[in-house]
Nucleic acid binder design. Sequence first.
DNA 1: GTAGATTATGTCATATTCGACATATAAACA
DNA 2: TGTTTATATGTCGAATATGACATAATCTAC
Lengths: 103, 103
Amino acid sequence: MMKATKRKKLESNGWKVGSVEDFLELSSEEVAYIEMKHALSNSLRERRTKGKLSQVEAAKIFKTSQSRVAKMEAGDPSVSIDLLVKSLLALGASPKELAKAIS
Amino acid sequence: MMKATKRKKLESNGWKVGSVEDFLELSSEEVAYIEMKHALSNSLRERRTKGKLSQVEAAKIFKTSQSRVAKMEAGDPSVSIDLLVKSLLALGASPKELAKAIS
DNA sequence: GTAGATTATGTCATATTCGACATATAAACA
DNA sequence: TGTTTATATGTCGAATATGACATAATCTAC
C-alpha cells in the first residue's frame, strides 16, 4: 500500500493516484475475471511443461493448433475460460486442482 | 455399483451396460466440464435467490435478458463458463467462492 | 377460479471465439 | 556462425455464444 504522504505529494503535482484497476478503469469484477484467466493460463503452461510437452504436442491432444495453445498460455483476450478449463482437464487436471488454481 | 451377475444377464440380452458417461459416450473430461458448469449454475441461482432478486432484476445487473439468466441457471449448452463466472462475480462472489463451488 | 408476477423455451441476427495458416521471434546447440 | 526446434503474433472464414424478443409454462395471492 502507498503511504498517504507520498500519495498527497503526487496528487499535488497533478497525478491521479490509484490502483492499477483505477488506472485502466476496470471494475473489481473485471479484475477478478482477468486474474482467474491468468491463473488458469499459468496452470496450463505449468502442466504442459511438467509433462515435457511442446505446444505442438499439446495442440494435438487438444485438437487445436500450436498458435491457439500459445494464446491460451498468454491469456489472450480471444481465449475463453471454457477453452482453458477444457484444456486443463484434457491434461489430466481435476476440478479440485482447477479450484486450487483460481483461489 | 451394478452387480456382475446382473450385468452379465443384461449383456447377454444385447444390452450395453456401463456408467452414465459410457451411455452418453462422454469422456471423463466432458463429464467434469459439465459438472463444473452445473456447479456454477447452481451457485448462481443460490446467490440470486438469497439476494431476493428475480431473474429480471438479475438480468439488469448483468446487462442481459431474463431468458439468458434462465438459461444460465438451467445450465443450457448455449451458456459458457465465462458468462457464469462473470455473472457470479457481478453478484459479489469472490474467486474463492467460485473455487469452492466447483470443487 | 384468475390476475399478476416469475421462470422456461424457442428462435434469430449479431458478436465473439474458434482452428488454421502464414510468418515472425526466440532459444538451443553444433 | 547457421540450422533446427520452440514459441509468439497477426489474420481470416467458420463455428459458437450472446442479447433480445415472443410466447409458454409455472407459481402466488387473492
